[in-house]
Design a protein around this nucleic acid. Structure first.
Lengths: 152, 152
DNA sequence: TGACTTACCATAAAAACCCATGCTATCCCA
DNA sequence: TGGGATAGCATGGGTTTTTATGGTAAGTCA
């Protein structure tokens, strides 16, 4: 499964293209399916992206909520409906939809932030602030590790 | 699974390369996946490193928290986002990102500290102090052993 | 035809790769 | 037991390959 980790800053050119960091690119299936899904974060002024597998999982996860319930409707409309399928060109670049760019207040530069099975796109200054705050409130937090996976 | 133990001190060359201690290297999968993840410790002024399996486990562990929750965000932004994928060259060396080097106040020499499924990188003098303090406060502590694993 | 994409090519900088060398701990054999 | 031979390891430097990023040509849809 894809594992996105690390942060990388890249430049958006005048045509709206950005290179996907090579380390993210190498996590995606090499054959054919060179496509990702981008959606606006419901939590922060940033964008999120993932591969097809995760989007499928997200959609499946919404089925925990009753069909036609408010939760299902809210989250489904906000994430799944919002998501755009974006293709990756021969040089490993994507074009971020203009309205998404302005939603995240992104200018010439984007910070790609690996978050495990998905990653985020931030305006660099915004992410710096966010990361500092997060690091601060992570201080003292501990992590209960899940048992090692036996799969794969 | 990888088992890193012991401490080793190595030299960083002018290109930023350090040899991974041979005993650590031999714990990594020989085929292909010759890569490790390095991140800044949320607890100490030191770096931590692990193999892909552990980073995946860490990312999986964060899924105990709901997607878009504060806990998931804080810890994800601090660890997974902070991590850098670092490749191991033919001679068993890695390049430690410069900003990480300065975070840990590392100069020409690094101390590698085995911590089981991960290991740490310290400025030698700092680790000495830390180790002394830890040894002192470990006095009297006990360990509840888990039952021997039956797998593999 | 014109606006807007999508595919293809070029290049500088950075990262990965390859080869070389001295040191050290281990082995081997008298 | 001693000392040379040997293999593994840390370290150094040069060269090739990737990557990010810019531009141009070819398609596409209204």
């Amino acid at each position: 499964m894809a594992l996105f980790a690390g942060t990388y800053e890249n430049r958006i050119d005048r045509k709206g293209r950005v290179s996907l960091p090579a380390d993210f690119r190498s996590e995606l299936p090499a054959d054919g399916n060179r496509v990702i899904y981008i959606y606006r974060s419901p939590k922060a002024q940033a964008l999120e992206a993932c591969d097809r597998v995760f989007m499928q999982r997200l959609a499946d996860s919404l089925e925990q909520y009753d069909l036609f319930s408010d939760e299902e409707d809210d989250l489904g409309s906000t994430i799944v409906a919002d998501a755009r399928k974006v293709s990756i060109d021969g040089e490993g670049r994507i074009v971020v939809p203009p309205e998404f760019v302005s939603f995240a207040d992104i200018g010439e530069r984007v910070t790609f932030v690996g978050r495990g099975s998905r990653f985020q796109l931030w305006k660099p200054e915004d992410f710096e602030k966010h990361a500092a705050a997060a690091r601060n409130s992570a201080k003292g937090r501990t992590i209960r590790l899940v048992p090692p996976e036996s799969k794969e």
